[in-house]
Amino acid sequence: MKWWHWALVVCLVVAAILSPFASPWPDGLERVAERLGFAARAEGPATVSAPIPDYVFPGIASEGLATAIAGLIGALLVFALLYGLGKALAHSDKSA
């Protein structure tokens, strides 16, 4: 296995195994929005509905497992998108 295979596996493990243990508290911006009273502006239907809203894979009873699967899918999607983009940029170099 090459270095990046191992590194990707580490990232997938982090995404799947550690994500269910993340702090459920609101983040800095959410907290400020609550305190200053503009948090409600973000309520209402989403502009575009996402397949896995809020990192919880739908239809799975265990929320920890649903989050772990969401993390795994997300990390793989980001890797695939960047790998494809990198290949495309490298290819455009040859044809240029």
Binding site: A7, L8, L12, V14, A22, A80, Y83, G86
Partner: peptide, 19 residues
């Protein structure tokens, strides 16, 4: 190219883990 992909996967994973 794979390092870019791994960096993205790491950032995605790490951003899920609120401390």
């Amino acid at each position: 190219i794979p390092v870019m992909g791994v960096a993205g996967a790491f950032v995605f994973a790490a951003q899920m883990i609120n401390f």
